[in-house]
Nucleic acid binder design. Sequence first.
DNA 1: TCCCGTTGAGCGAACGTTCGCTCACGGGGG
DNA 2: CCCCCGTGAGCGAACGTTCGCTCAACGGGA
Lengths: 347, 347
Amino acid sequence: MARRYVSLKEVASRAGVSFQTASKVLNGGSVRVAPDTAARIAAAARELGYSPNSVARSLVRRSTMTIGLVAGSLHDPALAEFVLGAELAARQHGLSVLVSNLTDSAQEGADVVEALIERRVDGIIAAAPQLEEDVQVADLLRRFVPAVSLHHVEGGGVPLVGSSHREVAVLALRHLLELGCRRIATVAGPTGRRVVRSRLRGAAEVIATSGSEVDAGIAEADWTPGGAARAATELIAREPGIDAVFVHSDLMAVGVLDALHRLGRRVPDDVAVVSCDDLAFAAYLRPSLSTIRLPFLDTGAAAVELLLRRVGGEPVPADPVLLPVELVRRDSSARLLAIRPSRKECP
Amino acid sequence: MARRYVSLKEVASRAGVSFQTASKVLNGGSVRVAPDTAARIAAAARELGYSPNSVARSLVRRSTMTIGLVAGSLHDPALAEFVLGAELAARQHGLSVLVSNLTDSAQEGADVVEALIERRVDGIIAAAPQLEEDVQVADLLRRFVPAVSLHHVEGGGVPLVGSSHREVAVLALRHLLELGCRRIATVAGPTGRRVVRSRLRGAAEVIATSGSEVDAGIAEADWTPGGAARAATELIAREPGIDAVFVHSDLMAVGVLDALHRLGRRVPDDVAVVSCDDLAFAAYLRPSLSTIRLPFLDTGAAAVELLLRRVGGEPVPADPVLLPVELVRRDSSARLLAIRPSRKECP
DNA sequence: TCCCGTTGAGCGAACGTTCGCTCACGGGGG
DNA sequence: CCCCCGTGAGCGAACGTTCGCTCAACGGGA
């Protein structure tokens, strides 16, 4: 193993031609070369186990056919799905994907992006909310390499792709209001994030149409089930009359459902729950989870397409590319009566 | 944007030195160079926004400082976690990671691995069960590039890393037997996979010690909650007296819990459930899920360490590198009495 | 005064490609 | 019979580095 790679020169000398001629036939170009010469070269390549060196090719072509994907952590299933979508789409175009996960340290973002730039990726997809305010990263993305982003980029100049966070919240809140909910609380992601703030703003807009007493408070959590369970517990303690919870992710919703159960609240009879994402397990929770479906796979593919257009020199679209979201109604918000039934105890 | 990159030559000419001298100071080597010359070069580099071209460096150094990671789909949260662990560990060593997801088509595996080889990755980590029987891929991994694998590689020669599938099953089954379960069924992953077969074998061994009537059947599923729910339903139909289910993943367990509930079985009172993985949400399901914890993050890091040793020329260890697994007891297997209580109905 | 060692910097070659240009060789049309 | 053009293949340069060797200058010890 770790055998030396054979080069074009060696293939060529075995076939009795110059290495440039070998290059012509092996790179697949339909150039002028005699059929039998081509066959001889192909045979030599096969016999020697020739594998083209795309490092050398990248050097002269000034294109690595590689894109960089800097992601907030793959720990988040939604983001993992996005990465999957992007990678599959990239491969369709013959591109490889260099993936970097961000943890939390401040300098990390710029370091990671710089590493990608040194590797001369053809473009970068940023999918890491923690980079929202990073001016250093924003500057790198603007100056050195074509890029697209899932999140706000400080100072602009980088095309955005994704779904409308505001709309996600609007769909959820409207649904809860139509159900007759009148005390709606929110278990949000970290409120420092724009995604989260956009959702909160969207929700507030809808609530404003129904009177402010509908807002039963917001608790911040860290996208984990455990954090969300604590947040929900805190909300109920603050405001026992809550009749609905809007949760910012399916994973957190698992924790919320658990907390509500522990506190003796039945879902959906006492409290309706709607969350965001529509992960695979959402339909199989008990009760099955109403949620706003976000098209992560498609978003990944769309990011790649947009990036490719950007690489091709198209101008930055002024508006973000938005993909549709959709309410999926399930049992956690299946309120049969607008009037809340009396609570029944189950041993 | 898409501005031309500045080369060492340009930096050097601005600093009034040869480009090789500029190389010496910019690559960080502690070579003999006068302090003020070094400062001049560094200043020129900064002013021009020099970014070293690691493509050219890779060409001459014959090392890309990049590893390839071919993963079954990131759709699987466990695998995503593994990729995360591997990427973080790789970055610690200054390596970037090229990630490829496999879907299903037969030729894809070899194509993807060949693409990585053409990119001259320094090593490959294979984490895709669908590659288990792929002799073409096995051959590439043996012949061209240092590799480690999470799964069996046809013909050997590639070091393995992971946890003992057998032990996972043994821990789960022993636990269920100690609980007093006497009709134990299994919702397995695709039985074509060695992982799955090893688990089934481990389970069978344990069951064999307690009499064969303990085995209440196996149903195959596709790692999804939905598939698992169908499998569980089928198992109960075949064998209504089941008092325990061993599920091959947490995600599938969500589906199994749902199916059991629909069929009027209480967990754990009527049926105990133990699964595998210990994903973040397992502790927050209702009932909380007993599961065998697999150290995905650590496995990712271990794979990178092993690969690096392999790249460094160390011989293939004869035995797989095994990471410990652990039973996490939670409510889904919290049987209070060895004697099953009579079933109580809950409206 | 001579010689040698050290310090600082330049130089050439190599890494494995791609790409455009040149060139030799025939054959066919005027 | 000559010329021109098409075909097939070679050649040189370039991509941006790294690395080892050479070389000039200088200074100090014998």
